[in-house]
Design a protein around this nucleic acid. Structure first.
Lengths: 181, 181
DNA sequence: CTAATCCCGACGAACAAGGTCGGAATTGAC
DNA sequence: GTCAATTCCGACCTTGTTCGTCGGGATTAG
């Protein structure tokens, strides 16, 4: 496949495929958590994604300390932390860079102010959007996306799969009414 | 100037220049609200933006019913509504298209489900991000971005510039309900 | 009439997104 | 020791969107 058709996020503020594929990759690793390393080929098949491309993405995730790799035969990747301790904000930041809808709204405190910062009244808008996104993303963990497993092999893992364990409830008032149903 | 340096939104989920310039354009129109039409050349100079490019953007805003145009000499553009009745969400949607971080999280009810929608547990993440963005944007109006004017020429216009006009207090949670259904 | 303005469609260069490729290094299994 | 599976790494290529530019036509005030 040369390229994905049209554009997978049609409008404004779209994530790139890096973000999308990377999250799907992480979810797969979440399902396999506790089963030892999983090879990229395996995951690429499961999610129907180009393996060579996933290699690039997983490198970012590894460098960010989110996944751990094992080289050699029977090697692969696995989560470096339990799923409920991986905030989705971290995942997306590792994949796509800092969450910043605009150059003057970087997450870094040493934000590169635009030259017009003096009379720039628009700044507050981008800041608020950035905070809303970051807040939402950091309020969700990978555990919220991994489908519940019936019976974990290791009973100690039951606490991990418990819903809403660590992640605070978001203050965004998210009404996700019947989204996918 | 052929192109803007590097990329004005460095990381993930960046607005394009359409969104940025368009908002700045609207703010300028907000400052001039009540003073009759303003020409694009004037605004382009004030904001130091390419006039020919603004022409394209303002077309979208006009088609969305946010600005009103007057043709001919001494013509120009003006806001079609008072600033406090223009939600920033509308502005950005007009400029950039629907707020959708991912194809499977469109604002339209007839969302084109990705082919994997059955076993897609990731969807909820994009939906929440989309709601957070839309909620934040729709809770702010153009009046929140226009710097307060000291003394309007026409005293009747004081009501327009007055801060308590209503939509300021909208909390993010309330407006979300209507958006999704 | 003339000058200012909006209006419209076509055009084009630069750039990042979205992948592909080939090979080197590492390791488990036999 | 050999072999196969796998991560690791950098270079390369292609395509579409973004970010504008350009030239002219339609409209209207003075």
């Amino acid at each position: 496949m040369p390229q994905r058709s049209t554009f997978h996020g049609s409008g404004a503020l779209a994530f790139s495929t890096k973000g999308e594929y990377g999250v799907r990759l992480m979810v797969q690793l979440g399902r396999r958590y506790g089963h030892g390393p999983a090879s990229l080929a395996e995951i690429a098949t499961d999610e129907d994604l180009p393996r060579a491309y996933l290699e690039q993405l997983v490198t970012s995730l590894r460098d960010a300390g989110l996944v751990h790799s094992t080289r050699g035969a029977r090697g692969g990747y696995e989560l470096a932390l339990p799923p409920d301790q991986i905030r989705m904000g971290e995942v997306l930041r590792a994949l796509e860079g800092p969450l910043a809808p605009m150059i003057c709204a970087t997450e870094e405190p040493d934000h590169a102010l635009c030259d017009r910062s003096a009379r720039c009244t628009v700044n507050i808008l981008w800041i608020r959007v950035r905070d809303a996104i970051a807040g939402t993303l950091d309020a969700m963990t990978l555990a919220d996306l991994v489908p519940v497993r019936h019976v974990p092999i290791d009973p100690r893992l039951a606490t991990v799969a418990a819903p809403g364990a660590g992640s605070r409830e978001a203050e965004t008032g998210a009404t996700l009414a019947g989204a996918t149903s």
